[in-house]
Write a protein that binds this DNA or RNA. Structure first.
Length: 263
DNA sequence: ATGCCGTCCATTGGACGA
């Protein structure tokens, strides 16, 4: 079973790229972030033609997440919005249960777009940390269920210096603040496995290259898109891939897809 | 470098992102 995460930076602007990638990779579940679309405007017809079911949690102009899946979520299992703050208007979280081919146990897939948090010194950074606190509580709740679960998405956190080509450039950035990194470690310390780091200790593995300043041709990247696996999912982890070549396509997103194969 | 690039929304320029 292939579970993917990809910040596509605008689903309407990225539709052809998304279709090409879905056709090439055929993930069972794809978590999309920054769809930048309301639910009604999500360009679903061509995606459905490729055999995908679509669940969205959209928002006008920015943010927005979606779950694409080869089979529909189990009835009543879709949750929109991260629990813990009814006043939070931003669409950054959607999760659902999916049947696993050849298994009696379904898997829960949560798709998240964690707040960026920049610039420091504004209300954006405490919003990020508060969101991470809520995520930790929800992840702990899911962990206690002792069932296969994946929290996949754009975490907007560079976990370690080796996850950036030039870590010194990020010292003043919300993505690499000690508080952001500590909150990410708390998720890991609950008992979740960073899928990529379960498969390699290599530095220089990135998922994002800025559009600016020649970041892509210079390979000035960072690793901020992660799949965190519950023990029940991590036990069946086969491999992790980063579809880096997609960054070289026409009109690319600044992020590339990350895919975990779970047995 | 309060810069660079890109998307969206609104109307040629601002908000937002990382």
């Amino acid at each position: 079973m292939l579970v993917a995460t990809w910040n596509i930076n605008g689903v309407k602007a990225r539709l052809e790229t998304l279709l090409a990638w879905l056709d090439e990779r055929r993930p069972d579940v794809a978590c999309l972030q920054e769809i930048k679309s309301v639910d009604e405007a999500f360009p679903g017809a061509e995606i459905e033609k490729l055999g995908y079911h679509i669940e969205t949690h959209g928002q006008k102009g920015f943010n927005g997440v979606a779950l694409l899946s080869r089979s529909a979520p189990l009835a009543g299992s879709v949750l929109r919005g991260l629990p813990g703050d009814p006043a939070d208007e931003q669409s950054r979280f959607i999760e659902a249960l999916f049947a696993v081919p050849g298994s009696e146990t379904p898997i829960r897939v949560a798709c998240l777009y964690l707040p960026n948090g920049n610039p420091l010194g504004t209300e954006k950074f405490p919003y990020k940390l508060g969101w991470m606190d809520r995520l930790e509580k929800h992840a702990a709740l899911r962990l206690a269920e002792e069932t296969p679960c994946i929290f996949a998405g754009d975490y907007n956190v560079i976990p370690e210096p080796e996850d950036a080509r030039n870590p010194a450039d990020w010292l003043g950035d919300a993505l690499f603040q000690p508080e952001s990194r500590a909150a990410y470690r708390r998720l890991i310390n609950l008992g979740y496995t960073d899928a990529l780091r379960a498969t390699t200790e290599q530095a220089g593995v990135y998922t994002f290259w800025d559009y600016q300043a020649g970041a892509w041709p210079r390979n000035n990247g960072i690793r901020i898109d992660h799949l965190l696996l519950s023990p029940e999912a991590a036990s069946n982890l086969r491999s992790v891939a980063i579809d880096k070549h997609v960054r070289g396509w026409e009109k690319p997103s600044d992020h590339v897809p990350v895919i975990a194969e779970i047995a």
